[in-house]
């Protein structure tokens, strides 16, 4: 969310090849990227052992992941709104939708994990945890990537 303070002009497009998101959003993104896959691992361990503590770990990991994904969602929305000017249009939209979906999946999964004993995970919990882990990793890939070479070339062509 580093602000581009240069005056907007029809010909100007930012051509830096830095990441799409600012450092604050990058910090928020780090949590779901770490916590959702961790929840998946502890879910698998629970299903293998029926040891309740693993399900408890999952519940807290998901709650933490959900909290930061909620904050991240605001950041992703700001990125989306600003994307027209920054030249990240398509990617910012996909990124926002992935974070939104992650938030929804994480919410349902948190409810699932609030049920008691075996029902706190079972098949639905595992499926949601797999989905959450994948979505978090995808969000990380998109969010942290520098702009692809063809995007930069494309932008330079426009600038010229």
């Amino acid at each position: 969310m580093i602000r581009d303070r240069r005056p907007p002009s029809a010909h100007h497009v930012r051509t830096a090849s830095g990441p799409m998101i600012g450092s604050l959003q990058a910090l928020l993104l780090a949590f779901p990227v770490a916590l959702f896959p961790a929840a998946l691992v502890s879910d698998i361990t629970y299903l293998n052992t029926a040891e309740m503590q693993w399900s408890n770990f999952s519940a807290w990991l998901l709650a933490g992941g959900e909290l930061f994904t909620g904050l991240l969602l605001i950041g992703a929305f700001v990125t989306l709104v600003r994307s027209g000017r920054s030249g990240y249009g398509g990617r910012a939209l996909i990124y926002f939708l992935v974070v939104l979906l992650l938030f929804a999946v994480g919410l349902v999964n948190s409810f699932q994990h609030s049920r008691d004993a075996w029902w706190s995970v079972e098949t639905l919990g595992l499926v949601l945890s797999v989905a959450g882990a994948l979505l978090a990793l995808v969000a990380g890939f998109i969010g942290y990537s520098a702009r692809a070479a063809h995007e930069v070339v494309h932008d330079r062509e426009i600038a010229r």
Binding site: L73, I74, F77, V78, V81
Partner: peptide
């Protein structure tokens, strides 16, 4: 564009919609 209004609307609508679906 009223960014603040859009933000608050999104933040309010998403969880509420998901919750009402579940409930």
């Amino acid at each position: 564009m009223n960014l603040r209004a859009m933000l608050s609307r999104t933040a309010a609508v998403v969880p509420v919609a998901a919750l009402s679906l579940l409930l």
